[in-house]
């Protein structure tokens, strides 16, 4: 894999401990390879994140965000719905800033959803290979660097 020499677009995965994070662990247990430009952070429920959070991520140079929540399996009442609301509210704000909305995706991943997990990751990776870094397309309101 010689192409690894350079910095690649980064995918941040926000995965619920009861769903996506455990699903990622299952993928690991199967020893299935996927790209290394993926960074998984555990969350209790992604409904914690306001729109600004996602926007800030892109501003900081995160090129894509996969939110892997537990969907209907969520242990939190109203959590999944609220997550969806927050993300839907983020899309127009992304557009305003010229960010391709495909960079933010919400997916329901269960503890053994190894195939969907891999599908999401590879799809996003392929997308990024096409559209490149977020910084290159962003219109940054304030002068940042």
């Amino acid at each position: 894999m010689a192409e690894n020499k350079k910095h690649k677009p980064k995918i941040l995965i926000l995965a619920t401990i009861s769903g996506g994070y455990a699903g990622a662990d299952s993928v690991g247990q199967l020893h299935t390879d996927y790209p290394t430009n993926t960074y998984i952070l555990p969350v209790l429920c992604p409904c914690i994140f306001p729109e600004e959070f996602y926007l800030r991520c892109f501003e900081q140079g995160i090129d894509a965000i996969l939110v892997m929540y537990s969907g209907t399996d969520s242990p939190y009442k109203g959590g999944p719905e609220r997550t969806a609301v927050m993300i839907n509210q983020t899309y127009p704000l992304m557009k305003e800033r010229g960010i391709d909305t495909r960079r933010l995706r919400l997916a329901a991943i269960c503890t053994v959803c190894t195939k969907p997990f891999l599908k999401e990751v590879t799809q996003m990776d392929t997308l990024l290979k096409g559209i490149g870094f977020v910084r290159d397309e962003m219109t940054i309101p304030e002068a940042v660097q």
């Binding site: 894999m1 690894n4 990622a24 020893h31 299935t32 390879d33 960074y39 998984i40």
Partner: peptide, 21 residues
């Protein structure tokens, strides 16, 4: 930090990538 299930076990053959991750 989970370095095994989410890094070393899913990044065979990409030693540098896995290390950077």
């Amino acid at each position: 930090v989970g370095l095994r299930e989410q890094d070393s076990w899913v990044s065979h053959g990409d030693y540098r990538g896995a290390t950077c991750k």
